[in-house]
Simulated assay, not measured.
Amino acid sequence: MIHLLRCSTLVLASLVVCGASSTCNAQPRFHRNLLRNDTEWFRSEEAKAIADSVLEYQSPQGGWPKSTDLSKSPRTPDDIPQPGSGRANSLDNEATTLPLRFLARAVNATGEAKYRDAFEHGIEYLLNAQYPTGGWPQFWPLRDGYYSRITFNDGAMIRAMTVLRDVAKGEPPYDFVDGELRSRAAAAVERGVDCILAAQIEQNGNLTAWCAQYDEETLKPAWGRAYEPPSLSGDESVDIVRFLMSIEEPRPEIIAAIEGATEWFRKVAIHGYRFEEFEDENGERDRRIVADAEAPPLWARFYELVTNRPLFLGRDSVYRYEVVEIELERRAKYDYYGDWAQDLLAEHYSAWSSRHDVASSGGPDGGGI
């Protein structure tokens, strides 16, 4: 009874930890929580069926589509997003990087050559998609529009670099990767780090944070969607800093980038407010900023490049400085505020500075608006 209840709860939560010995009959979705399963599960028929399905969705270029349940084998060729479509060959929403992580586990558990070949083809995709300036687009082969900008938005570039970094290290489950491919992955990561350092925005000579998108040639902040302006990101910049903190032997430029960004996060932290969801008089979901002296610090999704003022845009692309001025549809569905940097400042920075003998410059309440 307990086992069945646990299984039902996990399925409802889209978590897949019903392993080889489980009696669950629900079809698991392709989700990062599959990676929580142990090696025994990756040897199971259920896991191999999912891995075989993942192979079917891989494009000729080596990438995978976004917003697609890769655990369900396509019934017809039309179920597979084709190159040039709106979903194929993407790094958005964990496309390509999550399948690679899953296949690495499958290779590690089973040793099957078909999984290894697909994995290596996927790594070649990541290497081919990298711009000469070191960044990665949201889609490759390239699509017209903001999709071809260097994309930190939603973690796209950092996820690509994380997979390549782990491949370069050659530790399980990536210990099957040969030395030549590992070396190329390491070189790509180095170029990516150089891109990150070059793209960090300065204000009056002080290093701050990053924009969510950049021009792939000039490395200047660029537009994303209509409501995503060239700006300093209070969200995406956190993942960038965490990646830089993961570098085992950071050179002085990396240390300076981390110090500059964490100081900027302290400076622009918003104290005394919370961003809450409520139901308006028409019964519709809405969100608002509310004064609350006990609330933990918040950060805006966008900060104006020069002034550091929180910035809010709707689908009309008009710059505004109050979230209430944005149309309901965007205000209710888009995260204009979040607690993104709280753990970075309260925990990660302290641990990193201790490891590298860097004098801490404060905690999450070291400054703010």
Rank of each mutant, 00 (worst) to 15 (best):
I289P: 03
G192K: 02
L219T: 03
T208S: 14
S85H: 11
Y125P: 12
E112V: 00
I326N: 05
P81E: 01
E112L: 11
I2N: 11
R116E: 11
C18T: 06
A261W: 02
R191H: 10
L10Q: 06
H31G: 10
E45V: 06
T110R: 07
R225S: 04
K66G: 06
N108L: 08
A51S: 07
R149W: 07
A20T: 11
V177S: 09
E347G: 06
R242F: 00
A109P: 06
T110E: 02
D78E: 15
W140I: 04
L103K: 05
D235Y: 12
L5S: 11
D154N: 11
P296D: 01
T151Q: 05
P83H: 05
D175F: 10
P74L: 09
L207N: 13
I255A: 11
G63V: 07
Q61V: 04
A341H: 01
S183N: 15
D69A: 05
L311I: 04
A332I: 10
A222P: 13
T218W: 05
D280P: 04
G363H: 09
A359V: 12
R165Y: 14
A95T: 12
E171H: 13
E294C: 02
S71I: 02
D52F: 01
I50P: 03
F42L: 08
V238L: 06
D79P: 03
E180F: 09
E304R: 05
R225K: 13
V193W: 00
A13D: 14
A113H: 01
R309M: 12
V268D: 09
Y337H: 12
L12S: 10
R266L: 08
D92N: 08
A49N: 02
D166C: 11
N25Y: 00
T76N: 00
G205N: 08
A109G: 11
P141V: 01
G205F: 08
T162Y: 07
G155V: 07
N153D: 15
Y349W: 09
L207H: 15
I289T: 13
K48D: 06
R116A: 08
E281V: 14
K48F: 04
V306E: 15
A212D: 07
G84P: 08
